[in-house]
Design a protein around this nucleic acid. Structure first.
Lengths: 244, 244
DNA sequence: GCCCTTTCTTGACCTGTGTCAACGCGGCCC
DNA sequence: GGGCCGCGTTGACACAGGTCAAGAAAGGGC
């Protein structure tokens, strides 16, 4: 698989507070900590961008000059190993932040999964704003802590249990995430491909496909379409995901 | 395996700044951000404790009332699954912080691996101090970001590659960590058991044992004793860990 | 609507690693 | 010093899941 060329966003806007006030992500991300006048200051530093399916926000190894708030859609963070295998580090949705990293270069590639909108800042701009508004730093610490918890859940998902258990845990996680951001918990929508899921869970994509079939056969889920999974027995799936 | 009883620390002290000034961890943890007078304020809130091998700092599910700076030794964070399997989330050393979590209850159990010293704060005390001294929050954000990077490396270690590749990556990580805190990079010291390593890497402990033998057979390492591993070919081990 | 490409499913086979079991070693306590 | 117990090593075997391959179903562009 050839390295995809960097892709320009399909649209870029600078904008004023009014755009922030109607932003659907503002209560999930760092802007939620701010009063309207403070938000106005921050909005002057922001740039809004739209990416379409498969577009690359940045590549692993690029200088880490920019941080991103995702305002809509889904973004995939992944890292490529020398042997050609890929590890998907995470799927990020509206309200998530990209840019917690102590390193000078991005340690992952960020790509839009079926379209995404972001609002970005240069690192120096955000650092300056955070110095003036300590609330921002406080909120970023909360968000980083939440990300750390999520990463630790991912670790447990990867380390323990069978392929089917991992997939169950993954579906429940997506369901919970959707509910957390005000969406619907049950028919779970999968914006990503089977291969993306496989690379997230450390499996082969054929195994993911087989496990969907097995979970459906066991009456735990119903695959309504490729990307819509209905959980038909929540409790049993939860029980199973935590290993029986 | 029965749940080990909570263990009282073998010693507890309250203390003044003088103890902080000679603390070997102070340049690695949040104290490094502070001037001497600021450190004095913080030191009044701290409690110092010593734990010996196997002692439990707290259990998974306990109310998360306290945060810890590790000042010496090693601590293991782990979580137990319903099926009796254990995932080791991380090994923490001098300079590391326990307590980034958005949850009310600890999501992991913390246990001393062959002895540890910590310096602890109640959450409210630390929150109050952070409010007065924004430097603390800034430094905590840096530390949380570093922890997140480490967790993402752990994810990649778990998701990709063979058992031997995982073990290689683990040894290199321990070597780097030791060097980072001013220790010696090469004969790698393993404070933990084979089973701890296995539960960290998502393997069976027999597999870990076999992989040590295989890496030694391949001339990459030399097992000088159970807990002292000499890396005899750094470059080859690094090449191998990233998968060949 | 139709074609072409990408993604997904299913099958057959094989290998790496988990499991079970036996044994060796070393440290600790009496 | 001797015995015991936890920890580590090694072997035999089975099976989950990886790999390779063929074909079906979606999806996008014209």
């Amino acid at each position: 698989m050839a390295k995809p060329a960097r892709t320009s966003p399909s649209a870029t806007f600078s904008f004023d507070v009014s755009r922030c006030l109607i932003c659907s992500a503002k209560n999930l991300n760092m802007c939620g900590a701010l009063e309207q006048d403070e938000l106005a200051k921050l909005s002057g530093l922001a740039r809004c961008e739209s990416f379409s399916s498969g577009d690359v926000l940045f590549h692993e190894g690029d200088p880490a000059t920019t941080v991103y708030n995702i305002t809509d859609g889904a973004v995939r963070l992944s890292t490529m190993l020398k042997n050609g295998r890929r590890q998907v580090i995470g799927f990020l949705f509206s309200g998530d932040f990209i840019g917690f990293s102590d390193r000078d270069a991005y340690p992952w590639t960020a790509e839009a999964v079926r379209g995404a909108k972001v609002c970005r800042f240069t690192r120096p701009d955000l650092a300056k704003a955070a110095k003036e508004l300590p609330k921002i730093e406080h909120r970023l610490l909360e968000m980083a802590s939440a990300d750390l918890s999520a990463a630790q859940d991912h670790i447990t998902m990867l380390g323990q249990g069978s392929a089917a258990e991992k997939l169950s845990a993954f579906l429940l996680m997506l369901s919970r995430k959707a509910a957390d951001r005000g969406g619907t918990a049950n028919p779970v929508h999968l914006p990503m491909t089977r291969e993306d899921i496989a690379d997230y869970l450390g499996l082969a994509f054929e195994t993911v496909s087989r496990c969907f079939a097995r979970l459906e056969g066991a009456g735990l889920i119903s695959v309504e379409s490729l990307r819509i999974i209905r959980i038909t027995n929540f409790d049993a799936l939860a029980e199973f995901s935590d290993s029986e």
